[in-house]
Amino acid sequence: MKLMIADDEPAVRALVHATLEDDDYEIIEAGDGVEALEMARAENPSLVLLDIMMPRLNGLDVCRSIKSDPHTSDIVVVMLTAQARERDREHGMAAGADHYFTKPFSPLALLDLVERVREGQPDQTPR
């Protein structure tokens, strides 16, 4: 199963990597919003972890674009952001996100979520 982590903070990407690397996930990384959108279209991952405050294009816009494009609208989008207010969560869900994780997050909870997504979508997971 292919996952994408988009975050401008390399250490966060490293944390996600460290969380998921034991299982057979293919993890691709994007450092900003534009890169994330391009990669989502090109690689068509099953799940995207999206930071919101990213250079060039923010995560909400990336989410909207993914969800509005039929080719990518099936992608499960998980917002992974430091914006923890309830209003931010509403904005995120309004933009089409499937899940909303706030930083700091529990790596095990994330792993749990990813596994649930994989079990829900076995066919789409390339092995």
């Binding site: 903070e9 944390l15 460290a18 700091p104 997050f105 790596p107």
Partner: peptide, 8 residues
């Protein structure tokens, strides 16, 4: 962000 890293 650093808290996330420390926690994670």
């Amino acid at each position: 962000t650093p808290l996330t890293l420390i926690h994670g």
